[in-house]
Nucleic acid binder design. Structure first.
Lengths: 197, 197
DNA sequence: AAATTTAGTAAATAAAATTTACCTTCTGGC
DNA sequence: GCCAGAAGGTAAATTTTATTTACTAAATTT
């Protein structure tokens, strides 16, 4: 009956927040455990109490971000009908997320995919979940005749993800501005109707 | 008058080859200088004689790969007319390169973009050069009426690069097979004509 | 033939990550 | 009311890696 949330110990929270804040303008590799500990105001040992290693902490931060992202996507999709409309909304929401959460964008686009452990992490499980959602929507669109049936759904998903990510790469790397509405509009237009005149 | 090639010292060559070969099935982060030196059959110090640090060596390997890639692209484009035909060929050539040169794909898709130094490297200068080529072709296509003029060229480029890269990500990460012809065909179809039925 | 550069080694140093041993406080069961 | 053990935390040692330094020996230049 009780709220079984097992509230996060303050030290752990401080570590996570320090990591988030340091990643705001530093690369993962350039951060040291000592630096993270100092920023968090805890000792280095405590980091290893809560996380297997530096990467595990990174994956944890990503997981929290991704959970928020999925919750928002879920909301955003409420009441939207039709596969293309759903994809359009997902494109918009994703851009919006990358544009306004640079740490999230940097972690997922630049920092995690180069390690094997990531693909065993809970964060990656969430990514796969999002992937499945997209594939479902594409299949729905093909079934309804909204989407061409001569393209492999995986290709369509790759195009959507790839275009989205590449469009936000300069934001993640160089901190360039991204106009969510304009970018989402161009991408949607492009992917839905093609570049051919 | 002489051939001014300043032939590469054998030790340097051995280091580069060791790096290439280790990256075949290991991530950059997981490699140690000591391991690279042993594989190359040289001492650790020699690596620092020729390269600023571990990353500098990585960038050098990428640069060599990218040079080969650009030479091949140049050849592949010979005699091809029309912006869409050129883009089609570039898509095919890129997929082919990623599919058959996994180390190249891994380095550029997974290992370099997370460091600031990369964007100062000679390797990145080559990437920008390729980028400009694509933009030129897109502009040519718009001018000729082959490509829609209502989409920003940068968006089109992002879509092409992004889709290409995402289509080869599973190849780079999980060593999954990629059929160059099928993949190139789907991507081209998709980007040229859109996913809408 | 002296002077300098080039290719290379071996050992020291520095910088990180990770582990270990320990201390305190709180909590549930007797 | 108390005590065993878990939970939160520290401080210092250890290990692992990257990087630097000081030094040969051969080749090249002058």
């Amino acid at each position: 009956m009780e709220k079984q949330v097992t509230t996060c110990p303050p030290g752990k929270l401080k570590i996570i927040n320090a990591m988030r804040s340091l990643l705001e303008d530093r690369t993962f590799e350039s951060l040291t455990i000592s630096e993270i500990a100092i920023t968090a105001g805890v000792t280095e040992g405590l980091i290893y109490k809560y996380f297997k290693d530096k990467r595990d902490l990174l994956h944890h931060v990503l997981k929290e971000h991704y959970e928020q992202f999925l919750i928002q996507i879920d909301r955003d999709l409420q009441g939207i009908d039709g596969a293309l409309n759903k994809l359009k909304k997902i494109i918009w929401s994703s851009i919006e997320r990358y544009a306004n959460h640079r740490v999230f964008a940097r972690i997922i686009l630049l920092e995690v995919r180069n390690s094997e452990e990531y693909f065993q992490s809970e964060a990656y499980a969430l990514v796969r979940q999002f992937n499945r959602l997209i594939i479902e929507i594409i299949n729905e669109g093909v079934a309804d005749g909204e989407i061409r049936e001569d393209l492999p759904p995986a290709s369509i998903r790759n195009a959507i993800f790839g275009t989205l990510e590449h469009s936000c790469l300069n934001r993640a790397i160089f901190n360039e501005e991204v106009s969510t509405n304009d970018t989402a509009k161009s991408i949607t237009e492009l992917l839905f109707n093609g570049i051919r005149r």
